[in-house]
C-alpha cells in the first residue's frame, strides 16, 4: 500500500499575526511556523494505516525551503521519505492541489491523507480539489476510518451530528480532530529522520484562480456589558441573548 500525506507549513496558532505593508500578505518577521495541526492527524492516520497494512508513507509539501521543517517533523514521527515541491511564492488552493495531484500520480499512491483545513488560509478545499484532479474518491472531515479490502468506511462530522459513509480506493481522506491522537516524534525518530531523504523539485507554475485583494484584521472586540448583579436582570439578559446576540 502506497500512502501519501500532504502537509502545510503554517504560522503557530499562538503567534500574533501582523499584516505586511502591501496589505496582501502577512509579515513573516517574528512568526514561528509549525506543521498544520490538522495535518498531524493526517500523518498519524497515515502511519497507523501503514502499520496495519504495510507499505510506504511519503510526505509531500508545497512551498519554500522552510516547509522542510514540517516535512522533517513528519519524518521524525515515522514517515518514510519526503518531497518538497518548491515554490517561494504563495499560491492559491487550486495551484497547490494541481502540483500535489501530479506528484501523487507519479508516486502512484492509493490512499492520500490531508488535514481537513490548514489554519493559515482556512479554505478547507485542497484535499477535495486534489481528489477531483486525480479522479479519486474523497471523504472529508473524517473522525473514524476503516479499510476493508478495496472498501473504505469512514465516519465524518456533519452539522449537528455524524454520518457513516462507504467508498472505495483510491481515496483522499481529510482528517478532523478526534480521528486519532498524534504521536510525539520520539528522540529515536528525530535522530532517524536525519538519514531520511527529502527530495526537492520545483513546483510547476500555476495561474492563480483567486487573487488576494486585501487582508485586514477583524474589528477589535467590543467590551462586555454588566446589566446588574442580581436575578432581576435575568429577563433582560435573556432578551438580549435572543434578540441582540442571537445565540439562544
Amino acid at each position: 500500500m502506497k500512502i501519501a500525506v500532504c502537509v502545510s507549513h503554517v504560522p503557530d496558532t499562538a503567534t500574533k499575526i501582523k499584516i505586511a505593508d502591501d496589505s496582501k500578505t502577512i509579515d513573516p518577521n517574528g512568526v514561528t511556523y509549525i506543521i498544520n495541526p490538522y495535518d498531524e492527524f493526517a500523518v498519524e492516520e497515515a502511519l497507523k494505516t501503514k502499520e496495519k497494512f504495510g507499505g510506504e508513507v511519503v510526505v509531500i509539501s508545497v512551498g519554500s525551503e522552510s516547509n522542510k521543517e514540517s516535512i522533517k517533523k513528519a519524518l521524525a514521527m515515522g514517515v518514510d521519505r519526503g518531497i518538497l515541491l518548491k515554490d517561494d511564492n504563495p499560491r492559491d488552493s487550486f495551484g497547490v492541489a494541481k502540483v500535489l495531484a501530479e506528484e501523487i500520480k507519479n508516486e502512484q499512491c492509493e490512499i492520500v491523507f490531508f488535514g481537513k483545513q490548514s489554519v493559515d488560509y482556512d479554505n478547507s478545499i485542497t484535499g477535495q480539489l486534489t481528489a477531483e484532479l486525480l479522479g479519486y474518491q474523497c471523504i472529508s472531515v473524517v473522525v473514524d476510518l476503516k479499510f476493508e479490502g478495496e472498501k473504505v468506511i469512514a465516519e465524518r462530522e456533519i452539522e449537528g451530528g455524524r454520518e457513516v459513509v462507504e467508498s472505495r480506493l483510491p481515496v483522499v481522506i481529510t482528517a478532523q480532530k478526534g480521528l486519532n491522537e498524534p504521536r510525539y516524534a520520539s528522540l529515536k525518530g528525530i535522530m532517524a529522520a536525519k538519514k531520511k531523504v527529502i527530495e526537492e523539485k520545483p513546483a510547476a507554475g500555476s495561474k492563480p484562480t483567486v487573487e488576494i485583494l486585501k487582508m485586514h484584521k477583524p474589528p477589535a472586540k467590543q467590551p462586555g456589558r454588566i446589566l446588574g448583579t442580581d436575578s432581576s436582570v435575568v429577563p433582560e439578559l435573556v432578551r438580549l441573548l435572543r434578540e441582540e446576540a442571537k445565540v439562544i
Binding site: 510525539y184 520520539s186 528522540l187 535522530m191
Partner: peptide, 26 residues
C-alpha cells in the same frame, strides 16, 4: 516511548545515540 531513558547510548542497547547537548536540553 519518547526515548528519554539512556538516550545517548547506542541504538543496540535501546538508546538514540543523541549527543550530550541534546541530552542536556532534554
Amino acid at each position: 516511548e519518547l526515548g528519554l531513558f539512556g538516550s545517548t547510548l547506542p541504538q543496540k542497547y535501546g538508546g538514540s545515540e543523541m549527543n550530550n547537548v541534546a541530552y542536556g536540553l532534554v
